[in-house]
Simulated assay, not measured.
Amino acid sequence: MELILKYFPSLTDIQKERFARLKDIYADWNSRINVISRKDMDAFYEHHVLHSLAIGRFIQFTDGTKIIDIGTGGGFPGIPLAILFPNADFTLIDSIGKKIKVVQAVAEDLGLENVDACQSRSEQFKGKFDFIVSRAVTALPTFVSQSRHLIGIKQANAISNGILYLKGGDITAEIQPFQKTLSVIELATYFKEPFFDTKKLVHLSL
């Protein structure tokens, strides 16, 4: 939890309380439904919460921004971002029902009224959003083809509508088709922990 306060020192009391409770809530659910690897629970705030919040260092979502988290798994990056941006609206989807069950329970436990979670594949989902967020569920070209229909055209933020994709390793080949509409941010510019040395945030305008 100290790690979150290190990089986000101006959280409100309710945000601090929600972030502080996250690990225990996930540990409890993880004992029943395995949504986070056991070894990762030891580095929960670094590997899951802070990693998700990298998007919050790149953009401050305006009030009313509509965001969809595709392939959310146990709720990342959607749940931490929903805590950070209580006046933005988050829809979290995943094709696996038991993971969505956990997400719904976590959101309810924390009193997150800006989170809606449902079981669905992105290709079949309908709606219009300002941003798609995700932690690398597939190669970027495949992800774009499956989800770009969800991006709306009305702009309400400092950066253009599109995909905010958290990715690791060498992404040279998969970003090649999007060079003119894409920017890559090295997360080591935001966070000093070695875990982030190879982690990136990709913003693709759509």
Results as ranks from 00 to 15, higher is better:
Lys167Trp: 09
Ser95Ile: 12
Ser205Cys: 12
Phe131Pro: 09
Tyr7Cys: 05
Gly152Val: 09
Phe195Leu: 12
Ile59Asp: 03
Asn30Tyr: 08
Arg135Asp: 00
Ala107Thr: 04
Ile159Ser: 01
Glu186Asp: 07
Ile153Met: 09
Gly75Tyr: 00
Gly97Lys: 15
Val103Lys: 04
Thr138Pro: 05
Glu113Thr: 12
Val106Phe: 06
Pro77Gly: 01
Phe76His: 00
Arg18Asp: 00
Asn87Tyr: 10
Val106Ile: 15
Phe125Tyr: 14
His149Leu: 02
Leu50Val: 04
Arg135Tyr: 01
His203Asp: 07
Trp29Lys: 12
Ile171Pro: 11
His47Gln: 12
Val133Leu: 06
Phe19Asn: 00
Asn34Leu: 10
Phe90Gly: 05
Ile163Phe: 15
Gly152Tyr: 05
Pro141Ala: 08
Tyr45Gln: 11
Lys99Thr: 07
Ser183Gln: 14
Thr91Asp: 08
Phe58Met: 06
Phe196Gly: 08
Lys167Ile: 12
Val184Ala: 10
Asp89Cys: 04
Asp69Ser: 04
Ser183Asn: 07
Leu164Cys: 05
Lys126Tyr: 03
Thr72Arg: 06
Arg57Asn: 08
Asp42Gln: 12
Ile132Gln: 11
Glu193Met: 07
Ala156Arg: 13
Ser145Thr: 15
Ala88Phe: 14
Leu112Gln: 00
Ser120Arg: 15
Leu81Ile: 01
Ile159Ala: 03
Ser145Val: 05
Val35Lys: 14
Ser147Trp: 00
Asp130Asn: 15
Glu123Tyr: 08
Glu123Thr: 12
Phe131Gly: 11
Ala173His: 13
Tyr165Cys: 08
Glu193Thr: 10
Gly162His: 02
Leu53His: 12
Tyr190Thr: 00
Leu204Phe: 03
Thr181Ser: 06
Ala43Glu: 08
Asp116Pro: 00
Pro80Arg: 06
Leu92Asp: 01
Lys66Pro: 02
Gln119Ala: 09
Arg121Tyr: 13
Phe195Ser: 03
Phe58Asn: 01
Leu3Lys: 14
Asp116Arg: 15
Gly71Thr: 02
Val202Glu: 11
Gln119Asp: 00
Ala173Glu: 14
Gln60Glu: 15
Ser122Met: 05
Gly73Asn: 01
Thr62His: 12
Lys66Cys: 01
Ile55Met: 03
Arg148Asp: 05
Lys199Gln: 10
Ile159Phe: 02
Leu204Glu: 08
Ser134Thr: 13
His149Phe: 03
Phe61Thr: 00
Val202Asn: 09
Ala27Arg: 04
Ser134Phe: 04
Leu11Arg: 10
Gln179Pro: 02
Lys128Ala: 02
Ile68His: 07
Ile55Gly: 04
Tyr7Thr: 11
Thr172Tyr: 02
Lys199Thr: 04
Gln176Glu: 04
Asp63Leu: 08
Leu92Thr: 01
Glu2Pro: 06
Phe76Arg: 00
Ser95Thr: 01
Ile25Val: 13
His203Leu: 13
Pro80Ser: 02
Val133Lys: 11
Leu3Gln: 13
Gly73Gln: 01
Ile68Cys: 14
Arg38Lys: 15
Gly127Ala: 06
Glu113Cys: 08
Lys128Ile: 03
Phe195His: 05
Gly97Arg: 09
Ala43Val: 06
Val102Tyr: 07
Glu2Thr: 10
Glu17Ser: 13
Pro194Asn: 10
Phe125Glu: 04
Phe191Leu: 06
Leu92Val: 08
Leu5Asn: 14
Ala158Thr: 07
